[in-house]
């Protein structure tokens, strides 16, 4: 189980590195799909079918929107020629990444092991199915215990849509 997750995570990391270094924007967007669909399998392995359904549809929609954005654009990216200066930059990047990883390891040291049973906080939500009578516990949490968060989410989504329309629409409604 943990081994499968490690394999999928390594695949996702390789896909993201290729996606960021591709010389063509279309192949960059498509290999970005590796990350999203790998995430779907990871969610299924982690026993989160709700998230897997949402993620697989959202990933397809994201890819379609991205391809619609880069269609008919000049998508070749000039390759950087190798200079000694760039090797220094790569070394600095690697050192910074190592430092970040060390800090992260220290910071997450207080967390329990992967898969450990720490249900002190979650037990009320699991018993809560008797209060909400919703067989799907995730829906019960989203729409009953924490419905206020869902209201905030709806507001953020609405604001993002208004923002997209404001940026993309040049002509007003009255002009045409």
């Amino acid at each position: 189980m943990e081994l499968y997750l490690i394999i999928i995570l390594v695949l996702m990391i390789l896909g993201s590195i290729y996606s960021l270094n591709a010389t063509d924007l279309l192949s960059a967007v498509i290999s970005y799909g590796i990350v999203g669909f790998g995430l779907v399998i990871a969610f299924l392995l982690l026993q989160a079918p709700d998230l897997a359904i949402v993620q697989v549809v959202v990933e397809v929609a994201t890819l379609i929107i991205m391809i619609a954005a880069i269609k008919n654009t000049q998508s070749k990216i000039p390759k950087m020629e190798f200079k000694p200066k760039i090797a220094v930059y790569y070394a600095i990047t690697l050192i910074a990444a190592l430092v970040f990883i060390l800090i992260f390891d220290r910071a997450t040291g207080c967390l329990s092991q992967f898969g450990a049973d720490t249900m002190r906080m979650a037990q009320p939500y699991i018993d809560g199915a008797q209060h909400t009578k919703s067989a799907n516990l995730v829906t019960g949490v989203v729409l009953d215990f924490r419905a206020y968060d869902t209201l905030g989410e709806a507001t953020v989504l609405f604001t993002a849509v208004i923002g997209v329309l404001t940026i993309l629409r040049i002509k007003g409604k009255k002009d045409n």
């Binding site: 929609a61 379609i64 929107i65 619609a68 954005a69 989504l157 609405f158 993002a160 849509v161 997209v164 329309l165 993309l168 629409r169 040049i170 002509k171």
Partner: peptide, 16 residues
């Protein structure tokens, strides 16, 4: 929301 975003991306993108 998502259908509106897609329509805006496809339709208003080509508007000059």
């Amino acid at each position: 929301a998502i259908a509106t975003i897609f329509i805006a991306m496809v339709v208003y993108k080509d508007e000059e």
